[in-house]
Design a protein around this nucleic acid. Structure first.
Lengths: 337, 337
DNA sequence: ACTTGGCACTTGGGTGTGTCGAGTGCTAAC
DNA sequence: GTTAGCACTCGACACACCCAAGTGCCAAGT
């Protein structure tokens, strides 16, 4: 009863189950995969695998299906990420290169990923934390209304309209802009709040009141910037695989809709040597997502922003992982320019 | 066999079916609703209603369910929009007033609507077409890179970064801004392209090249503004009512994901005297949405932007219509300030 | 001209039974 | 450590059956 063969059996079970959706028995295994042993031997192997908690039988004397633990072992030790085909790579590249806007790039990416994997795709907007301040602009819209614009070095633009308690002069505003801009130009967005605090304390008292209002707005722009936005695509793919999910897909849709949940989910993933993170079924922190798996990875300069897909536990991990990795790479490259 | 009673029967069938989900029979009708006649009479009425295509029997000798046509008659002639309860109104108001940002308002609105109706809520961002130009700003980010910002009177801000073929001076840019702004300040966004064309032709030749680049960007900002964005909430509500939809919910999720489809859908709705538009089942143009009904209305100054909910044909129309109308009103009021 | 009671008929759903096939676990032999 | 064989277990399916709900229609009543 050799160890390598047992792993081979597990791999075969996973692969068969993934594309038949049905419990797989010992006989079917020896038929489909040319293992050089008889079904009885496989049965013995399967008994051991079951004892180890890697596979389970839905009911007495039916075939076996992989457990979450079984998938985990499969992903970690058995499977190999299989590279995408050349035409696929080509398609990814041309599609992403055709985008003009950052919004457009992200939109195309998420759709592409959904289509490629036939699952729900999730991408998080690039984090602005690593970017720095490129420009700041204040525009007086009305005596007590100021448009505050913050442009980051990665091309993202944040804006917000604030009301000031008292009227402010155009010249006064220009002065403020000059002072604040010179204080924070080139500063990393993550360090912006601190620098703004310093800048505020150095303002002449006459400018303090309005300066405070504006600086608070800037802090918000830097903080809750675009990096807390996520994009979804392919939710319809969930419906196709009804039955793959133990419960209904309701809780999953709920989770997807709650950006906060998804953000936490993505940020909590840990990355293995291959740079891809997989959360399988019950490994997911949020209860509604047991029965679902998440395959994600980081992208961009410091891999700070995340992107990934969500699908049934019974998913084709090698292909999915390949697609996720490939899309992340191409996206990183596009964003670099 | 009086006409009024037949309508009463139809109403009773719709109401019963809506909250029992089961075909309703003649006996159950006389029991639950105190119609002063026997079940045999009701049967005769139902036979007529069936002949008129207002109700149908799923199989021989089972109860009847309303057809799309039946719902239509119900909505048009029988039902009354029932006002929301005072606490509900209060809740809407306080929730919406707590928002600070336009984005925040829209986000709260769509969630609110989903929760109120237990269905999928859709809101379209306010149209900018009716709004006018409040301010224009050009920011020189790099010698050949200009940030173009367009602020509309309704508070929406559009921005875009354009590259110019040749370097441009700060002073030159300020001059351009001055000329263009004075030409289009206060102009309706819908009329902006025309006015920009005039402005361009009046520019001194030296400014033409850069001016053209910038003006093209402005045109785009005015055109494909925020009004083509929609927000969704409550998709999980679809899952709860599996079985209400003849097919799977897949096509519906697909349609919801395609902003273009939803935008067309919303814009094509026609509004009756009550100002609320209802599309029932097969009345929907897009095939994937047969089996679903849409209740929508306009909001904002000229009711140009739309908002509504999507749910199973078997929905509680009076309550849903009331909720949609109420939310639209409160939203309009909030946006006015 | 409606309304009503009565009755025969239809049908989906639930239940119980029997059969079939896939699959297991175990034991004894190789 | 592997294999063949065998008894056993279930789920899935088909079939028969009955029941309750409901209809359609007819003849009688108002």
């Amino acid at each position: 009863m050799s160890e390598p063969r047992r792993l081979e059996v597990l791999r075969a079970i996973v692969e068969d189950y993934v594309h038949s959706r049905e419990p797989v028995g010992s006989k079917a295994l020896v038929d489909r995969h040319g293992l050089g042993v008889s079904s009885a031997t496989i049965r013995n192997d399967m008994a051991v695998l079951e004892e180890e908690g890697l596979i389970a039988a839905p009911h007495t004397s039916s075939g076996r299906i992989p457990t979450d633990k079984g998938y985990r072992l499969f992903v970690d030790r058995i499977s190999e990420v299989k590279p995408l085909s050349a035409p696929e790579k080509k398609a990814i590249q041309t599609l992403l290169e055709g985008a003009d806007d950052l919004d457009d790039v992200m939109d195309r990416t998420v759709r592409l990923l959904a289509q490629l994997t036939n699952q729900v795709a999730v991408v998080q907007f690039p984090r602005v934390g690593g970017a720095s301040v490129r420009h700041i602009e204040f525009v007086l819209l009305a005596p007590q209304q100021i448009l505050v614009v913050l442009i980051a070095s990665n091309g993202t633009v944040q804006q917000r309209i604030v009301r000031t308690p008292a009227a402010i002069q155009e010249t006064e505003l220009a002065d403020l802009r000059q002072r604040i801009l010179s204080a924070v130009s080139g500063v990393k967005l993550s360090a912006l709040p601190a620098e703004l605090g310093v800048a505020l304390s150095q303002l002449p008292p006459a400018l303090r009141a309005h300066g405070g209002t504006i600086i608070r707005a800037l802090e918000q722009l830097a903080g809750l910037g675009r990096d807390d936005r996520i994009l979804l695509a392919g939710t319809a793919n969930l419906a196709r695989s009804t039955g793959d999910f133990p419960l209904s897909i309701g809780p999953i849709l709920e989770a997807l809709e709650e950006q906060v949940v998804m953000l936490r989910l993505l940020s909590e993933m840990e990355y293995d040597a291959r740079g891809i993170s997989v959360r399988i079924g019950s490994e997911n922190p949020y209860g509604g997502l047991s029965g679902a798996s998440v395959v994600a990875t980081g992208y961009g300069p410091d891999a700070g922003a995340k992107l990934g897909v969500l699908g049934p536990t019974r998913m084709d991990y090698p292909t999915t992982m390949a697609a996720v990795r490939a899309v992340a790479r191409y996206l990183s490259r596009i964003l670099e320019e």
